[in-house]
Design a protein around this nucleic acid. Sequence first.
DNA 1: TTCGTATATTCGGAAATACGGATATTAAAG
DNA 2: CTTTAATATCCGTATTTCCGAATATACGAA
Lengths: 106, 106
Amino acid sequence: MLTPTQLCKCLGDDLRLSLVCLLHGQGEVCVCDLVDAVSAPQSTVSRHLAQLRQCQLVVARRQGTWMHYRINPELPAWAQQTMANLVSPACEALSLNLPVPACCEN
Amino acid sequence: MLTPTQLCKCLGDDLRLSLVCLLHGQGEVCVCDLVDAVSAPQSTVSRHLAQLRQCQLVVARRQGTWMHYRINPELPAWAQQTMANLVSPACEALSLNLPVPACCEN
DNA sequence: TTCGTATATTCGGAAATACGGATATTAAAG
DNA sequence: CTTTAATATCCGTATTTCCGAATATACGAA
């Protein structure tokens, strides 16, 4: 089960926090769009997504070769509130420009 | 200035999160009481407190040889809310028993 | 000044984490 | 079956973080 320490550890990295912000802003995003949005190597993004998934912060849905990620809607309330609190200051601090242009509209 | 990533990094450690919870529960606590409460070596506690201080999460007040720490009351709202959200699940997850018995009543 | 208490800092090593190119896997299309 | 596109995993390396004993500092008392 997710602990507060684990949540903070997950969010305590610029790239992972960026991914969470992007997913929080748009319901569901596929990996290629996330790779574009954060302009980091694909393997790096995928590795961080795996970490977020392992902590249950995000869930994935496969559609053909695409994987669509979204924030896990079944997180405990304290975790959801924590993430909601952080998103807007984080978007500013990380200078993320939402929304991400979607490559795959399926 | 404090960024969301830095805040999360600070809170993403069992010992630091414990210290923050203890300080959040009682206005002001001296180092020796914190050392007792978390039962960790003094140098370790002091090092983590220095880190929290460097991120401005806590402030210190010297009284003779004692140092009294408290949560920085001037934190941005998003940071205060984040910490407030996490305190109660963190106390449970870390099994902290508040309040801490105070050794120095000055 | 000297001593004792409370706290901070230093230091070397251990452990955890991050990185990204290369490779593997999965699935759709031909 | 082969190819291609999207994504995941592997692996060696680099960086960061953590630890606690030892040492240093700050302060009050004698």
